[in-house]
């Protein structure tokens, strides 16, 4: 449901940093503005961002699933339980300032989700690694961000093995919250210990393959960073700086 969606849009072909910069820019913009209308303009921009990559349909569903519960709670928290003045919507009194607040917070949420789910869908992890390598990003950073994701499925498989083994010995995962809490020890301890036992081999294997090498690594297929890419990223930067200048200076003066 969530992840890279192969495609041929301009954003897919762009340098991997460009969609990430746009998404970050949209996040910062969502917090730079505070009027409900302006926030939803940012949401619209995020939707446009998704549409231009041809992934609007793909990201809309997870975005809605993630946002809906919070929207409902925001509506109750601020709309129904908010302060005066109220308007009557049928039998319920709905707070006007609360409703506006709910629109602002709900909008920010929607903008962030749409923006980053789109970035996630358009940036191929392999190209991102190549781009970071070509830029000389320190190995440790690339390693932690990318290689951890390949460890997670293996660790999850081990959780399943441990659960099976402990269930054979009478561990029960159901029952009261307290019983479920108690099941955690026999699960977490073997998981962590077995993972720690592999640390030395992993470090040695990395060591013999140049893990500690200083200097720039060779990128085999470095993505092209075109003039358009750089222009877009500069435009994002300028827009964000302008928005915050307006927020903190313009509003006062």
């Amino acid at each position: 449901m969530i992840g890279y969606v192969p495609g041929a849009s301009a954003l897919h072909r762009a340098h991997p940093y460009t969609p990430l910069a746009i998404a970050t820019g949209l996040l910062l913009m969502a917090f730079a503005v505070s009027a409900p209308g302006a926030v939803w303009v940012v949401v619209a921009a995020a939707a446009l961002f998704a549409a231009s990559a041809g992934v609007l349909g793909t990201v809309l569903r997870p975005a809605a699933i993630l946002a809906l519960p919070t929207w409902v709670l925001l509506t109750i928290l601020h709309g129904l339980l908010g302060g005066a003045p109220h308007v009557m919507l049928g039998p319920v009194a709905f707070s006007v300032p609360g409703g506006e607040r709910a629109l602002v917070f709900g909008g920010r949420l929607a903008a962030i989700l749409l923006a980053f789910l789109t970035a996630l869908a358009t940036v191929s992890p392999a190209r991102l690694v190549e781009a970071m390598t070509a830029r000389g990003v320190p190995f440790g950073r690339v390693y932690l961000l990318v290689s951890t994701l390949t460890v997670v499925p293996r660790l999850r498989a081990r959780v399943r093995q441990i659960v099976d083994a402990q269930q054979c010995r009478g561990l029960r995962l159901g029952g009261s919250p307290l019983a479920r809490l108690r099941a955690l020890g026999p699960l977490v301890v073997p998981l962590v210990l077995s993972a720690l036992a592999e640390v030395d081999e992993q470090a040695l294997a990395l060591d013999v393959r140049g893990g500690t090498a200083r200097g720039r690594r060779t990128a085999l297929e470095p993505p092209e960073d075109s003039r358009a890419d750089r222009a877009v990223r500069l435009a994002v930067l300028v827009a964000v700086v302008a928005a915050y200048a307006w927020k903190f200076l313009g509003a006062g003066g």
Partner: peptide, 19 residues
């Protein structure tokens, strides 16, 4: 950070996510 520390950090992150 040494290579081994890096491997331990990766393990810690994976434990965070999985647990």
């Amino acid at each position: 950070m040494t290579l081994r520390d890096l491997v331990v950090v990766r393990l810690g992150v994976a434990v965070n996510l999985v647990v």
